[in-house]
Design a protein around this nucleic acid. Structure first.
Length: 208
DNA sequence: AGTGCGATTGACT
DNA sequence: GTCAATCGCACTA
């Protein structure tokens, strides 16, 4: 068991209310850096500090919502604060937070976490020991947190196993860059990350 | 019904 | 640095 279980830490994160979340995808992406992501399962509880996000804004050709609402992307059209989980490259799951109001498609991809709780469980799920690699990158993050299709569409702001929590310590300076791995709208500065964090994905220059 | 490719990762030269 | 893995989706016809 990790030393940071909830009974040892009287002041754990508090679940964020929907009213606290900025509606705008870009503002939400920046806001989420430093916040906590928590998943409670029968296997145990895992949590991490969000250190990297990307905004996929309204009308964004790089966003999954661009083609209009479909069976796959319907969660992006839910009111802000819902999970959109999609299957990437036939291999990995990726976790997003829906943004904007209902029926408007936009969201924030959560790309990397600094592991906080349940680190041994994360290691078991990921099959690696390296702390910095447990949730560095969206596919790894979902694997470490045990996030898959079952969580697509869940409300992160109501009682449930997956939720967003308050920041556990002050947020460092937030850097901004182009988004990773896209070809459309590639010049837009819609990636946000905690500067200097070793838990941010990409090359070293992307962490500065 | 068939096709092309993607908001990735890990293994390999 | 390059590249295969592996699937579902959106699009064409």
């Amino acid at each position: 068991m990790p030393a940071t279980s909830s009974d040892a830490a009287p002041t754990g994160p508090r679940r964020l209310r929907r009213s606290e979340l900025p509606r705008d995808a870009r503002e939400l992406a920046s806001y989420l850096v430093g916040k906590t992501l928590v998943h409670e399962t029968a296997q145990g509880r895992t949590s991490g500090r969000i250190v990297e996000t990307e905004a996929y804004v309204v009308g964004d050709a790089a966003g999954h919502a661009f083609v209009g609402e479909t069976a796959r992307n319907r969660s992006l059209f839910l009111e802000r604060g819902h999970a959109y989980v999609y299957f990437s490259y036939g291999v990995h799951w990726c976790f997003n937070v829906s943004a904007e109001t209902a029926h408007v498609g936009a969201g924030v991809l959560v790309r990397a976490l600094e592991p906080l709780e349940g680190i041994e469980l994360m290691r078991a799920r990921r099959g690696t020991d390296r702390l910095v690699d447990l949730a560095r990158g969206p596919g790894r993050l979902a694997a470490a947190m045990g996030i898959d299709r079952r969580l697509d569409g869940v409300d992160l702001c109501r009682d449930g196993p997956l939720w967003l929590g308050t920041s556990q310590r002050p947020v460092g300076r937030i850097g901004r860059s182009v988004r990773i791995g896209i070809t459309k709208e590639a010049q837009r500065l819609l990636r946000f990350y905690e500067r200097g964090s070793v838990f941010v994905s990409g090359s070293a220059v992307m962490r500065r």
